[in-house]
Amino acid sequence: MRSSISIVIPFYHAEEFFEETYNSIKSQTLPAKEIIVVIDGCGEKAVNFLASYNDIKVINLEKNGGPARARNIGVKEASGDWIAFMDADDKWEPEKLEKQLFFLNNHPEFSSCHTGIKTFIGKEVIAQFNNKPLELTIEDLLVSSHAVPTSWLIKKSAFQKVDGFDTDIQCSEDHDITIRLVAAGENIGFLSEPLAFLRREGHGNISSNGRKIFIGHRQLLKKHQSLYNQHPQLKHQFMYKTCMTAGGKTTGLEKKYYYFLGAIIKMIFNVNIH
């Protein structure tokens, strides 16, 4: 029996890893209603590559617009009541969708949920993240993003309620949408079991670029300025963590700049990181 889950995957030059991603989707104990792959301006090479997968729906965008735009377009075309996001180089545990939908059916107060995650390179797991709040609050989200698209299952109606991802935000569009969802009364739950795997190989993953993280977080601060101003301590924590994260993902003078800026913020605002 199939669920009413549509899987939406932005695809950008992911030929090397897509087979592993696809196999993890097809191994789900609760099969999805449909798999929608949105080619984000890759041209005929990607179209020809995906043509060999005869059970996916392919949307070919001529111009590259980033993953937020690709996901929005995929959701618009989806026929399922639920949306599961997947990146074209990540993978899931076989029970991921089944356990999430079971959780959501038993917790109707949540319109979406995310799971614990493992990051990996090749066949090696390098880190695990599953110590997160059962229910995300605005205060949680003003400091950290918590939910990543590959671990997320959301009601299509909730996604549409907040008009999807903001395509003007770089790198942090997933963080932004969770803030807007919780502010709109759409609660986000958490399954601590790590059911999603995020690839961390050096192949252009946007999260590996410290400068884009820094710019994206500045955009978040500006967009949600009123919320951050209501919680100045959390604002300063977020600013400090932004600098330290960006510094850890850059090199040379830029790395020193972010670390120096973080040290100044910590000293001036007496930032206490737990």
Rank of each mutant, 00 (worst) to 15 (best):
G80I: 07
I59F: 06
K96Q: 10
F18K: 12
I154L: 13
I59P: 06
P31T: 03
S111T: 14
A184P: 08
S3M: 07
G43C: 04
N229G: 03
Y259E: 11
I5W: 05
E186Y: 12
H107G: 00
M267E: 12
A196E: 05
A68F: 08
V58Q: 04
L234F: 13
W92F: 13
K118S: 09
E62T: 14
I59W: 05
K91Y: 15
G248M: 14
Y240T: 05
L253D: 11
M1A: 06
F197Q: 03
C42R: 00
M86K: 08
L30T: 00
L61Y: 01
I268Y: 05
M267F: 15
D174V: 01
G204D: 04
C42V: 02
L220I: 15
S27L: 11
P133W: 09
S27H: 08
G248Y: 14
F11W: 11
C42I: 00
F103D: 01
P149F: 12
L104A: 15
D168F: 12
N272G: 04
T21G: 07
P31M: 01
L181D: 02
F197Y: 14
S208C: 05
K249S: 06
F129T: 04
W82S: 15
V8F: 07
H107Y: 08
K63L: 15
D40A: 07
P94T: 06
V37Q: 07
H274T: 10
H107A: 01
M267A: 14
D176R: 09
E16A: 09
F102A: 06
H231L: 11
N72W: 11
H224I: 04
